[in-house]
Design a protein around this nucleic acid. Structure first.
Lengths: 137, 137
DNA sequence: TTCAGAGATAAGAATGATTCTTATTTAGTA
DNA sequence: TACTAAATAAGAATCATTCTTATCTCTGAA
C-alpha cells in the first residue's frame, strides 16, 4: 500500500494526517492475522523508536471510530484489529487461539435474507457475523 | 431450580459438590442477562459473606471446563456466563452494551446445512453462533 | 511565509478484570 | 474415623487498556 493511498484513507476518515497514523495504518493493513495493539507496536517501534504504546492504542481506537479499520474482541478478551471493512466471519481455533477470516457470499446472502424475512422486534440490525469455533485438523 | 437439581448438575459434571459451587450455579442460572463474575459475586456475597471474588472466578471457570455452563466475551472484553448450553446467538446493543439471547431453529438449520454442504478445509467445526450487532429502537 | 489553535503525541501512572500464590479447609471415600 | 486430593479464602500480581498532563505538530488562514 503506497503512502498516497494511506494518506487518503486517513484524510477521508476526517482525521489529521500524521506520521504515526501512517505507520500504524500500514502495520494493520500489512497482515491478515488480526493484530493486537501490542503486535502493531512491536512491528513499528524499531523504525519509530519514539512512538509510545499509549499512542498506538489511542490511534487504533481513533481509526475505529473514524471507520477506517474495525475491531473485535477475541476469545481471551483481547482487542483485535482488521483493515478489512467488509463484513466477514471468523474461524476461531479453540486450541491455538488463532483467528482466520472466513468469507462466503452465499452464507452472507443466506443470513441477510433470513433477517430481512424475520425482523427482530424493536431492534435495528447493523452488523451480522458468524463465529465459527473449532480446531484445525 | 431446586437444590437436588443443582447438585446433580455439579456432580454430573464430575465435580465435588460444595456450598459455594451451589450458590454460584444458582446465581448464574437465575438470570438470562449473561452475568459477569462481578455480578455473580455481588448477588451472593450478602448471604455468603465469606466467599471470595477469586473463588467466584475460579469456580465459574471450573464450571465452564466441566461443561456445566458456557462463557463468551462481550464487546468490551469482559467474560460473560450463561447456564444455557444449547447453541444460541446474541444480540449486542452497540449503545447500551446489553446482550440478549436470540434463538431461532430455522436460522440454526440454515447455517448447519450451509456448513454441512461447505466443509472448511482442514478445520473441524464445533460451535457456530451468529453475532448480531445493532441497537434498540 | 508565518502563526495560531486544535488536535495529536509521549510517557508513565492508573484502572479494572482476571489469574496466581500460599495457607487453610473440607468433601468424599475407604 | 482418618486421610487425601481438591476446593477455598485472601490478597497480591498480571496484563491489556485507558487516563492524565505536558509538549508537540499539522494544517489552514492570513
Amino acid at each position: 500500500m503506497n503512502i498516497e493511498a494511506v494518506k487518503n484513507k486517513i484524510v477521508e476518515g476526517g482525521l489529521k494526517f500524521t506520521h504515526q497514523r501512517m505507520v500504524i495504518y500500514e502495520a494493520v493493513s500489512s497482515t491478515h492475522n488480526h493484530p493486537t495493539a501490542e503486535w502493531v507496536f512491536e512491528q513499528i517501534k524499531e523504525n519509530n523508536p519514539s512512538i509510545s504504546l499509549g499512542t498506538v492504542y489511542k490511534t487504533l481506537d481513533t481509526f475505529v471510530n473514524a471507520q477506517i479499520i474495525q475491531k473485535f474482541v477475541d476469545n481471551n478478551g483481547v482487542m483485535r484489529f482488521d483493515a478489512i471493512l467488509e463484513a466477514h466471519s471468523h474461524l476461531y481455533d479453540k486450541e491455538t487461539n488463532e483467528i482466520r477470516d472466513y468469507q462466503n457470499k452465499e452464507l452472507e446472502t443466506l443470513i441477510k435474507g433470513f433477517f430481512e424475512k424475520n425482523k427482530i422486534k424493536d431492534f435495528e440490525v447493523e452488523d451480522i457475523s458468524v463465529v465459527i469455533k473449532g480446531h484445525n485438523k
